[in-house]
């Protein structure tokens, strides 16, 4: 008990999260602004592909240019990192950090349920990320690019994608409850 009080003197407790509807409106206005200014939506996974293309290209240029996957990132001979999404993602990192600092939520931690080990959690995070990379490529986008941006434009493919994301996650949720609960 005493140590807890000590901590509170040095760290103000994290503020509660915003009203989800207000945060959603904020997010929607950012998306709308992106449509108005750029004529495109938000994204995230595309920046990872660009980064990967840049890494692979710097390690083995020949391999990268012969691979159908990287070709589209390299064919115009500019650096794949010179991409709108890459800059946007840097902004996301920064914006998340600002909000976290303001609300006292920046803290080193590993998110997991009480009955799950850190090692296993990190392994699962990596595995989940890998699946996400594969899925996002197949679907031509992730939750930000397809579900959010495409959803707001009433894209048929985006809505089909959105439903299957929720379906996929609910299907496995029961088996993974120990990781989170």
């Amino acid at each position: 008990m005493e140590s807890n009080q000590k901590n509170e003197r040095f760290y103000s407790p994290p503020k509660p999260y915003s009203n989800p509807y207000l945060a959603g409106i904020g997010l929607g206005l950012v998306l709308l602004l992106t449509f108005i200014i750029m004529g495109r939506g938000l994204g995230a996974s595309g920046a990872f592909s660009s980064t990967l293309a840049a890494i692979v290209n710097s390690i083995d240029t020949e391999f990268a240019h012969n691979n159908a996957f990287y070709k589209s990132y390299l064919e115009d001979n500019t650096n794949p990192l010179k991409d709108w999404l890459v800059f946007e993602v840097l902004g996301v990192l920064f914006g998340g950090f600002i909000s976290g600092i303001l609300a006292g939520r920046v803290k080193y931690s590993i998110e997991r349920g009480p009955n799950f080990t850190d090692k296993k959690r990190l392994l699962f995070a990596f595995l989940g990320g890998s699946l996400m990379g594969i899925g996002a490529k197949l679907a031509r986008g992730c939750t930000s690019g397809q579900a959010l941006s495409g959803g707001a434009l009433l894209n048929f493919g985006s809505w089909a994608f959105m439903l299957s994301v929720f379906a996929g996650a609910y299907m496995l949720a029961y088996f993974l409850r120990r990781q989170w609960r």
């Binding site: 939506g41 995230a44 595309g46 589209s72 990132y73 115009d76 991409d83 999404l85 031509r140």
Partner: peptide, 12 residues
């Protein structure tokens, strides 16, 4: 299909 002037990769 791929045009030269088009901004590359607008999707996510």
């Amino acid at each position: 299909g791929e045009k030269k002037g088009k901004p590359k990769r607008e999707g996510c």
